[in-house]
Design a protein around this nucleic acid. Structure first.
Lengths: 352, 352
DNA sequence: ACGTAATGGTCAAAGGTCAT
DNA sequence: CATGACCTTTGACCATTACG
């Protein structure tokens, strides 16, 4: 319908259709609805017969409302309030004083990221006591180097987790579930970030190097090559720094969907993840030196799917190695990385 | 039939017949159809048990929809969109703009997202010609239903890809690589989003339902349960809509890390992914009705890792089924989902 | 052929939104 | 807080389809 030449019977403005019984404009329509809904009651400050036209219709609400009724608008045509089309903005905290206190975040102002960084530094120190450093460093890694390094990393992962009070607060069942779910991802992620300054090789914790096409080490799923190509290279291109690394690691670790996390712990884990996510996003978008790089936040998060894929293939490789006796699988590695097996302990023990 | 004394089981208004499985009025009928068609997802602003009667039925859409389901309305009774009854040109005989002059279903400003939505709509129509609809819909799915539905979805995936010119421009080797890499993820993602209005069940394309704990179907990895718990439920909590769904699907599909994508094609695929990412972020942060929901963008992206994990377990399940002869594995499924096998064709053929 | 029941689509007139 | 240009949703009404 074309309302171009139809005028509002109340004020003479352009009408947009019949509303509440009278051909009228959107203004008079809205005015009438609000008046009825909010039970407004007006008083005329003048003689009670004010002109109601497009220019003066807002001058006297009493007289405008009178005209609405006189021209046929019916109160019963106004319905009760409906559902919101869009949901109300769920703002956290609901504090209205949030007007930018604008404390410029210097470097690592965020306490959560700060905590993660500190734990990471502790781990770097601890690593020296755990690592069996090979005498001639930087040589080509052997299968034995790889399993050694993996074992060391798993020990460190457990220590790392124990340093996080968000982890310590969880019940033991959940703790074990998170560790098991994360172990392979931890290995892959650490190896990838640690190698960010190498080219075409993975730097193991015992300071040997595993070249991405090394034929010495059984690797049907080409895990080493994919760590380099799918993770380390993108990390380098994104100029990923340690803050972002520790945050992303925590996001992957606190995964409420980990097998074995029950409904009670789900919320705790999810809450921790959301807090890290908040700090992580805040850092990447407003603090980081590369905050202007388009889509950087998304691309950092998109490191997680390939990380997961490679982790799963790593588990497959370890299973194959165990099956064919190509490498010795340590007890901790067995408990953390391989699926529960009837032939070994049904429940991980002494891990935490 | 005289409906004078029949009342709507949902709101108590005068019923006009049985609609979608429940005696109801035209209002509840239309409301239910629109909800299903547009994949609306509501949130109750109150306690979650609002009264639903003739006067207040529009006050809370969440609770109205809940009552619709509780009173027996079935989503599978809502059919796919038909052709317009009236030709779009209601005014001048020959309207020049070929595109539907009548209100198109929520066109998006972004041309890329618009393209993805249009292809999705095309697929919905095509589905009708591919799907072998079971006579009694909504029954419990059998193993045969599951494999049938998977086959249909794989056929549709190939058609879907062929409708994307960003895909058509790639060389055939890359095309096959992307399809193989995405196939299982496609099945999981479609099933998850399609089931957003069901509870505790997955809605298959042949309109049967697979309950998350169905004992009928072999599912050692509990894929159905995890689709519901790890994907559908979070999607519902995030109020994910179709735009976000098609964008996320494209981001997962155009994965330059897919096995078999060579260095030349890498950039093309990556470029497409980055463009979709750009549009996706733009939409979620500035256009979406839920743009104020904190960390929404990150949480949408974080759907991808569980999606990938479930997809890989689905492949495992299919392999097991094949191994034990529990289900017939179609040739297309074999080529797209299972690893290349020396006993069958070494190279996929006739897929694209 | 015809009625009936269930699906579909239409669009005026309700509703809500949010910069001003 | 109120306004009103602009957009979404509702539901009375009519068309189409399947079946006996």
């Amino acid at each position: 319908m074309n309302f171009e030449n139809v005028i509002c019977t109340i004020c003479g403005d352009k009408a947009t259709g019949k509303h509440y019984g009278a051909m009228s404009c959107d203004g008079c329509k809205g005015f009438f609805r609000r008046t009825i809904r909010k039970r407004h009651s007006y008083v005329c400050r003048f003689g009670g017969d004010c002109k109601v036209d497009k220019a003066k219709r807002n001058a006297c609400r009493k007289c405008r409302f009178e005209v609405c009724l006189r021209k046929g608008m019916r109160r019963d045509a106004v319905q009760t309030e409906r559902d919101r089309i869009r949901p109300a903005n769920l703002k956290s905290g609901g504090n209205s004083n949030g007007s930018g206190s604008s404390r410029e975040t210097s470097t690592v102002d965020d306490p959560l990221l700060d905590q993660l960084l500190k734990v990471e530094a502790t781990m770097r120190q601890l690593r020296c006591t755990v690592i069996t450093k090979t005498s001639d460093a930087r040589r080509q890694a052997t299968t034995c180097d790889v399993t050694d390094s993996m074992n060391q990393q798993l020990i460190l992962m457990v220590e790392w987790a124990k340093n996080l009070d968000q982890f310590q607060r969880l019940d033991m069942n959940t703790q074990i579930s998170l560790l098991r779910h994360f172990s392979a991802q931890h290995l892959v992620m650490c190896a990838a970030f640690r190698s960010i300054h190498l080219s075409d090789a993975v730097w193991l914790t015992n300071e040997t190097c595993l070249h991405k096409d090394s034929p010495k080490v059984p690797d049907v799923n080409r895990v080493a090559a994919r760590i380099v190509d799918h993770l380390t290279t993108p990390m380098r291109q994104l100029n990923m720094n340690e803050i972002e690394y520790v945050a992303l690691k925590a996001i992957a670790f606190f995964d409420p969907l980990a097998k074995g996390v029950d409904a009670n712990s789900y919320n705790e884990v999810e809450e921790t993840r959301q807090k890290v996510l908040e700090s992580f996003e805040q850092h990447v978008r407003t603090v980081s030196a590369y905050k202007e790089m388009p889509r950087r936040f998304a691309n950092l998060l998109l490191l997680l799917p390939p990380m997961l894929a490679i982790a799963r293939d790593l588990i497959e490789d370890v299973q194959l190695c165990k099956l064919f006796g190509l490498a010795s699988i340590d007890r901790l590695m067995q408990e953390l990385m391989l699926p529960p097996d009837s032939s070994s302990d049904p429940q991980p023990q002494n891990v935490v």
